[in-house]
């Protein structure tokens, strides 16, 4: 679809729209522990009853902002030592924004228990604890596609003792210090007041028939409030001890990869373990960093941005303090004000031949009506890292189709005032 010139993409934008039927990708290493990734709202997803919301971009973007607020509050509360900040801010958010996890659009299916039961989980590099709704839903459960996991039907399910080191460590991490009798409880609250509370437990996790993990720690949710999506929970991929990455360290040595499909009508994959055989020469590696304010997230050392092959005038310090993370659950990249303004201005300068139209609000403020153009040429965007590695974004990663071709927007947003 792209006739790439040196510094631009020339694209028939209609080719980037999702089709009405699913076209599974044939790529990906099928020999590895590989799970198929689908877009929650696309035709490849079996979450059929939720497809009706596929074009509700307003809700998707609002949920995305809630997630970003949640990430920032997790980090900011560590900065000022105010552990109650996220909770106090959460009360100001409208309930219709639903869950911060709702913005995480990519879903995989795993098996849990003995016999194993399939569960569709949002995979999330910004969460550490895997959780799923559990029978008997002592508090409440929201509707989900698959049957809700029933621990009493699993012969390998075990509750974690309150006095175990694992429970103590979880309680320390989550600041939730409760048990019922001798059973450890977990609680996770997100930035919009959605929450899950339940039993901290272990059971057998099945990724593929050859990738089965006994005694996998997870949250068995008995009260799950504020979630509106049809998935069964979260697959936590962040850097905490209880994430799937740490729990499978002996087999995969903390190596995982994913590919998010270019459109919602194709599929991607989530794989665990290093690639087999010769290394892929096309892979560009850059340094994985840790934020000084939070070790849970995956940090990257962004130093600059190129547009149209030209380096934007942005001080590297803009990206380094408090830092930059890579997140599978945030939809639209967020940039500090200085960086966003430089990027937006350069993009607009390259797009003067197309009619600029109003965006939905200040969130996406650079949108074009491209409905009368068979092809569109827009600038390439590259991220430059501190170690000199340059990453060129795919053509699909630059624009966001807010309203078909009538509102095609630059898919970046400016961070709120850091002091707000």
């Amino acid at each position: 679809f792209a006739l790439a010139e040196a510094d631009t993409h020339t694209v028939d934008l209609r080719s980037l729209f999702p089709a009405t039927t699913c076209s599974p990708s044939t790529k990906g290493n099928k020999r590895k522990a590989s799970l198929e990734v689908v877009h929650k709202h696309g035709p490849c997803s079996h979450l059929a009853q939720h497809k009706a919301t596929a074009t509700n971009h307003t809700q998707i973007l609002e949920q995305d902002q809630v997630r970003v607020n949640s990430i920032n509050s997790q980090i900011f509360k560590k900065l000022n030592g105010n552990e109650d900040l996220s909770q106090s801010k959460a009360t100001t958010l409208p309930a219709r924004w639903a869950t911060s996890q709702g913005a995480s659009n990519y879903v995989v299916t795993v098996g849990l228990g003995t016999p194993n039961k399939p569960l569709s989980l949002v995979f999330d590099t910004g969460s550490y604890l895997t959780w799923t709704q559990c029978q008997p839903c002592a508090g409440s459960c929201y509707p989900q596609k698959e049957p809700i996991f029933d621990p009493s039907a699993s012969t390998s399910y075990t509750n974690i003792s309150c006095n175990s080191t694992d429970c103590i460590q979880l309680r320390t991490t989550t600041k939730f210090n409760r048990c019922v009798a001798d059973t450890c409880l977990y609680a996770l609250e997100y930035g919009d007041s959605s929450y899950t509370i339940g039993l901290f437990a272990t059971d057998k996790l099945t990724l593929t028939p050859n990738d089965v993990f006994d005694g996998f720690f997870f949250g068995c949710g008995q009260k799950n409030e504020g979630f509106i999506n049809g998935t069964a929970g979260i697959l936590g991929l962040s850097r905490n001890k209880f994430s799937i990455i740490e729990q499978t360290i002996q087999k995969y040595n903390r190596f995982f990869s994913y590919c998010l499909p270019p459109t919602a009508s194709s599929t991607g994959y989530l794989s665990f373990g290093a690639p087999d055989g010769a290394s892929n020469a096309a892979v560009k590696y850059t340094r994985l960093t840790t934020l000084s304010l939070s070790s849970d997230f995956y940090g990257i050392d962004v130093a600059g941005i190129n547009v149209n092959g030209k380096k934007l005038s942005i001080p590297a310090s803009v990206f380094s303090s408090p830092g930059t993370i890579i997140d599978s659950g945030t939809v639209i990249s967020r940039l500090p004000s200085t960086a966003y303004t430089a990027l937006r201005d350069a993009f607009r300068a390259a797009m003067t031949s197309y009619p600029l139209v109003p965006g939905p609000d200040e969130f996406l403020d650079t949108c074009y009506d491209l409905s009368s153009y068979p092809t569109v040429t827009y600038p390439k965007i590259e991220f430059v890292f501190g170690d000199g590695v340059t990453l060129e974004l795919d053509a699909t990663g630059i624009v966001y189709f807010l309203n078909g071709l009538k509102q095609v927007c630059l898919a970046f947003a400016e961070n709120d005032d850091a002091n707000d």
Binding site: R254, Y258, L260, L288, F319, I325, S333, T396, I398, N415
Partner: peptide
């Protein structure tokens, strides 16, 4: 904080070598 979101990660393989302290990107990965 700046966030590199999932729209910008589309259609590329993203590899997390956490033990090796590096993250990789391969274009056209899907």
């Amino acid at each position: 904080i700046a966030i590199f979101g999932n729209t910008q990660q589309k259609n590329m393989e993203v590899l997390y070598d956490v033990a090796g302290g590096r993250v990789g990107f391969a274009p056209g990965g899907c």
